[in-house]
Design a protein around this nucleic acid. Structure first.
Lengths: 325, 325
DNA sequence: AAATGTATGTCAATCGTTTAACATGTTTGA
DNA sequence: TCAAACATGTTAAACGATTGACATACATTT
């Protein structure tokens, strides 16, 4: 591929001059500029971003380390991040660590090697590993990571509360909370807190069920939900840790011949695609993923410009009422 | 961050020597090797991949240009591609072009600038643009792209045929095909061909309905499906262009009080998450996405090693029978 | 006429590696 | 004993840009 030198030779100038028209720096006559541009066109010149990055000592790449790509929530998140990145002229380097601390560590190193402009991580080794001296801003998404420069999360507790309120106001007296992992400080745990608190305010004490396995999408929760509903036949409301779980709760109800929302009301979380693909559609807690993604990118930008940024950015969630309540 | 020079200074050697232990080239005494490694450890040295790439004249990054990230099919595809890439020590540079030719072109240029090791594109400007002289292998996914080095796709026609066979053998006499865009050479078009051909063999001539809009996920197809079913009340089978569409077909049936699979049978396509989140679960045509993704990465690898590769790799699909037929 | 500012362009160091070409010993084997 | 092979390490030129320091020429001011 053609280099700056080739272009320079073509128009009979030094590479320095050509570089200046490329970067719009210094004084350049209109004629020279035109000549250079023409030569670039002619040689199909494409600036070598690798060389540029080395010289400038920075890249325009943002690393992403996610626990899943296929899960609808992360698919949506990654999609939003890509868009926000694009709007600010960043590219996305994508890694999927499947929640395995060892992989996360490896990918963090990969990001260091590649001198990314920033790293957004949704880590599951929050307490295991401390990342420091990275050389670029580290944004923790939906997790509290001590070594991060900033955390971006939604108000999970508020979400739990909204769900409780919805279920109870719609008549539920025996609600339950269903979710996967629930380590302290993780979103699911905070959703539970919010849920339980509001229930308590209404004088209700709900069941809580944590799924055995927690492999994101590998497992089907439906059988476990069926067992749960059989063991707690009076349950009249379910707050599910995600829309995927909520969808499977609908399946479970369908299998057991329980009418939704008649005999059982369901509230999901996230407001992602599955919430609108089921029958009935799922009442859920909406996370403003787009805004949260935008915040991540902006935080990196600001941090890199030397601005100081809030260590936590918490976003409000809202209830989206559909067919399951 | 520490550089090779720093490490060299630390152990009192030249950078050349240090580079050799880093790359396991040439003769190095065990002692020197140990010293160097210790120094690297001590200085928390991390090789600068940017400099490396510049020097080696190649990166270990594979570009991905997709029309969507959030759509379950692409979420799955990207997930599989990331895994296969990781297994071969590649990283993923992710772009989403939303099917906009202009964006695709821009991203192809970005990949050129970044000197990717290869580019996998699921392009919607197949006929609009010709990419040539890229400097790296171009793999076209699920599309026939003239300027590509290789195409990877599933046997969409076979899939259409399988769907027709399933519907008809299960008793449908008035099946219909529902899908989004349908330009010649696109998967949807080939699925239709396969579907129509097999129907014809059975002496049946099905309806075909193309959705107005085609914005992947922005649009809800449900209302259009409802209209269709109202206008064609005898329809007893639906072959949907994707599982997402199939899920919405179930919703439409539910709204109209049509029993699935009793009065209406449905076959989807892809076999991705939504297929197992609905009630009933969707009978669908399974694409071996994992294998297809692996093939993409391997093709790039081989092409870069000078091997010649098949210009087309077509994968068999299979019927996965679930609750909608 | 000297000083200042504007306009145009060149030069060479630098970014952090890789790698071919050398230099210099030390073993071995015939 | 001499050459070949082995072992260890150095040097310096790439890779393809960026960028501060200069050089030169002309047009205005003062």
């Amino acid at each position: 591929m053609a280099t700056l030198k080739d272009v320079a030779r073509e128009v009979g100038l030094s590479v320095g001059t050509v570089s200046r028209v490329l970067n719009n720096r210094g004084y350049i006559s209109a004629e020279t500029r035109a000549n250079v541009r023409a030569a670039m066109q002619k040689l199909d010149y494409q600036p070598n971003e690798v060389a540029r990055s080395l010289s400038r000592q920075r890249t325009s790449t943002i690393g992403l380390i996610m626990p899943s790509i296929e899960h609808p929530y992360f698919a949506r998140l990654i999609s939003c991040l890509e868009r926000s990145a694009y709007e600010r002229a960043y590219k996305i380097l994508l890694f999927c660590a499947y929640g395995i601390p060892d992989q996360e560590k490896k990918f963090v190193e990969a990001c260091r090697s590649n001198r990314v402009a920033g790293l957004i991580i949704c880590s599951d080794s929050v307490r295991t590993e401390t990342f420091s001296n990275l050389g670029f801003p580290l944004i923790s998404y939906e997790r509290y990571l001590d070594s991060s420069d900033a955390c971006v999360l939604c108000d999970n507790e508020e979400g739990g509360g909204l769900a409780a309120k919805e279920l109870i106001e719609r008549g539920c007296r025996r609600p339950a909370y269903l979710c996967g992992r629930s380590r302290v400080g993780m979103p699911a745990d905070m959703r539970k807190d919010g849920f339980l608190n509001v229930c308590r305010q209404y004088g209700i004490s709900p069941e809580t069920y944590l799924f055995e396995a927690d492999r994101m999408l590998d497992v089907q929760y439906c059988p476990e939900i069926i067992s749960f509903l059989k063991e707690h036949p009076c349950t009249d409301g379910l707050f599910c840790g995600s829309d995927v779980i909520a969808a499977e709760a609908i399946q479970a109800a369908s299998v057991l011949g329980i009418d939704v929302p008649g005999r059982l009301k369901i509230v999901g979380f996230d407001d992602v695609l599955p919430a609108v693909l089921t029958s009935p559609k799922i009442t859920t807690i909406r996370q403003p993923v787009k805004e949260m993604a935008k915040a991540c990118i902006e935080l990196i930008d600001k941090k890199n410009s030397g601005e100081s940024v809030p260590s936590r950015s918490v976003f409000h969630v809202s209830l989206v009422r559909r067919g399951t309540t």
